[in-house]
């Protein structure tokens, strides 16, 4: 199950085996979360099986069949401004869109959570040093920062993902720092020290165990933001380059056709919307399910 795959390893090692089973059953009880998870799984399958599913090659155009409306024979979802099959391009587009939405988040989670937890647990000078540096990055609006970084590094998939990662690190670090600072002062940390737990045990089990859940859930909600930002970068010509199919880029190129064929032009946007809503609903459900008190 994908929840298990996503579980932070530090937790899995020390929890009773019953914990993740409990999370699973709590997720299964909530139809909205199950539906969101199903949509996510379907999207991932669609991306993986694109060559099998797509009726045509995504870059095969036809000058005489441009901007066909939805329902045209042979073009169930119409065609774009170069006469390429929209259905095929949307299916192939899932690959790059999901990649750019999903990859920056775990990387940023790793760095951001580490920075934030270290800052929160150490406190004092270390905290000030880390958090003020983070604040410098945080001061820029995320879109602006992503655009500036991508613009400087040049367009391309790797650079776009890198800049998105940099954008998310301060956000995750701030959440991690505030949660950790709160947990550090609680009685059970003192109690763990009083029972002889070593500092590393305290950080890895009692601090991580209590802060990873909230940080993890926050990070999950960033997946949709990442997708939208990635689409934005592609839209500005800083992410994926044509003729590769990516939803943000498709939205950009079809923008000129919005008066001719608005339904077709909106399709990539609809998919971005569905994907980000699914990720948000799922992360909301996960927040509830991971809390043993629920």
């Amino acid at each position: 199950m994908s929840v298990l795959a996503a579980s932070p390893p530090a937790l899995r090692a020390e929890r009773s085996p019953g914990y993740w089973r409990g999370v699973g059953s709590r997720i299964a009880r909530d139809p909205v979360v199950v539906a969101a998870l199903a949509v996510i799984v379907a999207l991932v399958l669609m991306a993986l099986l694109a060559p099998e599913l797509a009726p045509m090659a995504p870059d095969k155009g036809s000058m005489i069949r441009r901007l066909k409306p939805i329902g045209t024979p042979g073009y169930p979802l119409g065609s774009d401004e170069l006469g390429r099959d929209m259905l095929s391009r949307l299916i192939y587009g899932a690959r790059l869109s999901l990649l750019m939405g999903v990859v920056p988040v775990p990387v940023a989670f790793l760095f951001g959570a580490t920075l934030g937890i270290v800052a929160g647990y150490a406190g004092g000078l270390v905290n000030a040093l880390i958090m003020r540096t983070v604040d410098v990055f945080y001061a820029f609006p995320s879109v602006l920062l992503a655009v500036a970084l991508s613009g400087t590094l040049g367009s391309g998939l790797g650079n776009a993902m890198f800049s998105l990662t940099v954008v998310f690190i301060p956000q995750i670090a701030r959440v991690a720092e505030s949660v950790t600072t709160g947990v550090r002062k609680l009685d059970y940390i003192d109690a763990a020290r009083a029972s002889g737990a070593r500092p590393l045990t305290i950080v890895l089990e009692h601090v991580l165990g209590n802060v990873l859940g909230p940080i993890f859930v926050f990070a999950t909600s960033l997946v949709s933001v990442s997708m939208i930002l990635a689409s934005g970068l592609s839209f500005l010509g800083l992410g994926v380059r044509p003729p590769d199919a990516e939803w943000g880029l498709m939205l950009n190129t079809l923008r000129t056709a919005i008066y001719v064929n608005p339904a077709v032009a909106a399709l990539p946007g609809v998919l971005i919307l569905i994907t980000s809503v699914s990720f948000n609903l799922f992360s909301d459900g996960l927040r509830g399910a991971m809390d043993v008190r629920s």
């Binding site: 020390e14 929890r15 609680l186 009685d187 059970y188 003192d190 109690a191 763990a192 009083a194 029972s195 089990e205 009692h206 165990g209 209590n210 859940g213 043993v292 008190r293």
Partner: peptide
């Protein structure tokens, strides 16, 4: 040592 408020002195997630 045992603490005043057991609800706070035990880690809620284990």
């Amino acid at each position: 040592m045992i603490f005043q408020e057991p609800r706070l002195a035990l880690d809620p997630v284990y």
